[in-house]
Design a protein around this nucleic acid. Structure first.
Length: 460
RNA sequence: GGCGAGUUGGCGGAGUGGUGACGCAGCGGAUUGCAAAUCCGCGUAUAUCGGUUCGAUUCCGAUACUCGCCUCCA
């Protein structure tokens, strides 16, 4: 069996991955808060963990991997969006959830095994909070329930912080009802206009973090294999998840392996609305700000070409290069049956998800002409599948008339040595986005990506 | 201020304690009426300074720079 190695944030080392139960490898990844379209940065962890999911399924069997990714559909950002737009919270979360699944499918992400919604787990969250209070790890104050960071000695271990250091320079919300400024909210009161659920502490709603602890416990148990997300979530989100889960379920040890992907930048800068380099996955797919659309498969390829633990720079140049590569590859595997995944590709992926290395292997396989293994390997990465291929389909246009015309003109020119007419014809075809191949064997015309039917029409 | 990540040829981007992949671009050649496509060939790159070592790009320590998190945005 393939040995998978993963870089564990918890130990800061690359370790051999050994599942708790090889018959049911369990992974939890923090999903989106559904209040708006996913931007391109949100898509990076989706592709990263989708690739890991595919690798795990390949190694342990498709039926032996459970991948849970949640939807956080209760959050003050959603409430704010609802208030601002006049639409209901339900409408917003339903629509945004659908968008998310559509957009992620467009970049070739498989759906996780389970996609729980936070609002479906409120009673479990309340029960967990009650349990934390009973065990002395949390306390109720003024309608809030807070987690006491001092009650958990390992608080801060994942991100390498000490509670005292954090208080010193950090901007923490100071509230009179907090025993320690770092204590965080498990439950908070809701007014009449805000969504709320009845609880032992009055009508209220959960704080951020508790939903992931409750849902991962319900679906994966007190101990599971992998927990993932962007490295921005390391603190406080994951730190708080660990504190809640380990205190509520001291019999377990929560996640064995923590994986964090680095952030994404755009043209060398942090993506932000103020810099004008902010765009959603949908913007990219459909085209935006005068730019043409980028196929989902191309987005995926660009993501995979940088190792997940390095910052990734999204640039238009990379997208163009990726598109050319994929177009070439798709031409190579047309009609080819996938055989076995190449050892080199699998080895690269198994080595802490070295997707860039795996792509290099694909280049090598393509050069060697082992197309069956090449295709099988590409499919493992979620590339070259039928699901993402429409963009690369050759335009279906009958060029036989032009072929005949050009062939005839060429024959005449070969005899007369006057190529003026041939060159004019060729230039017109090139202008219309037609690739012109002339050789001793004859004339071949192909509609390329820049094909323009109107310009072709004008040549008639 | 605290925590963390990174720095490889023109660009992108891997690996490795012992003469530095791969892709793109570029250059030369074959081919072509000319091209395109294809094929062949071509690159005195591992931030800086120390240390360990027979030997470091790879390990260790500093320095510089870049970036992220700590704050609503991933």
């Amino acid at each position: 069996m393939t040995t998978i190695k993963l870089h564990n944030t918890r130990t800061r080392k690359k370790e051999v991955f050994t599942p708790i139960d090889p018959d049911n490898v369990r992974m939890y990844v923090c999903g989106p808060t559904v209040y708006d379209r996913a931007h391109i940065g949100n898509a990076r962890p989706v592709v990263v963990f989708d690739t890991l999911f595919r690798l795990l399924r390949h190694v342990y069997g498709p039926d032996h991997v459970t991948y849970v990714r949640n939807f956080t559909d209760v959050d003050d950002k959603i409430n704010a969006r609802a208030a601002a737009s006049g639409r209901s919270i339900g409408q917003i979360t339903e629509e945004t959830t659908r968008w998310y699944l559509e957009d992620m499918a467009a970049i070739g992400a498989l759906e996780p095994t389970q996609m729980p919604r936070a609002t479906q787990y409120i009673p479990q969250m309340v029960a967990m909070i009650e349990d934390l209070i009973a065990k002395g790890h949390a306390y109720a104050a003024e309608g809030h329930v807070l987690f006491s960071v001092e009650s958990y000695k390992d608080y801060g271990a994942l991100s390498g912080r000490a509670v005292d250091d954090m208080i010193a320079g950090a901007r923490v919300e100071v509230a009179p009802y907090k025993r320690n400024p770092m204590d965080f909210v498990l439950w908070k009161p809701s007014d009449a206009a805000t969504p709320g659920w009845d609880s032992p502490w009055g009508r209220g709603r959960p704080g951020w973090h508790i939903e992931c602890s409750a849902m991962s416990y319900e679906l994966l148990g007190a101990s599971f294999d992998i927990h993932g997300g962007g490295n921005d979530l390391m603190f406080p989100h994951h730190e708080n998840e660990i504190a809640q889960s380990c205190c509520a379920h001291p019999e377990g040890h929560f996640a064995n392996v923590w994986l964090h992907n680095e952030m994404l930048q755009v043209e060398g800068k942090k993506m932000s609305k103020s810099l004008g380099n902010f765009f959603t996955v949908r913007d990219l797919l459909d085209g935006h700000d005068g730019m043409p659309g980028v196929p989902g498969e191309v987005i995926r390829f660009v993501f995979l070409s940088t190792h997940y633990r390095k910052p990734m720079d999204w640039t238009a140049e990379k997208a163009a290069e990726a598109e050319a590569t994929l177009r070439k590859w798709r031409g190579m595997v047309e009609g080819i049956e996938a055989t076995e995944v190449a050892e080199g590709v699998l080895a690269a992926l198994a080595d802490d998800l070295n997707t860039a290395g795996a792509i290099s292997e694909l280049h090598r396989l393509a050069g060697e002409g082992d197309f069956g293994a090449f295709k099988a390997s590409a499919l493992l990465l979620g590339l070259l599948g039928a699901n993402l291929g429409d963009w690369a389909k050759a335009v279906d246009v009958d060029l036989s008339g032009f072929v005949a015309q050009l062939t005839k003109a060429r024959d005449v020119a070969m005899a007369s040595k006057d190529f003026t007419h041939v060159d004019r014809l060729k230039a017109g075809l090139l202008e219309a986005g037609i690739e012109v191949r002339m050789s001793k064997a004859g004339v071949e015309l192909l509609a390329g990506p820049e094909f323009d039917a109107v310009k072709l029409e004008a040549l008639q």
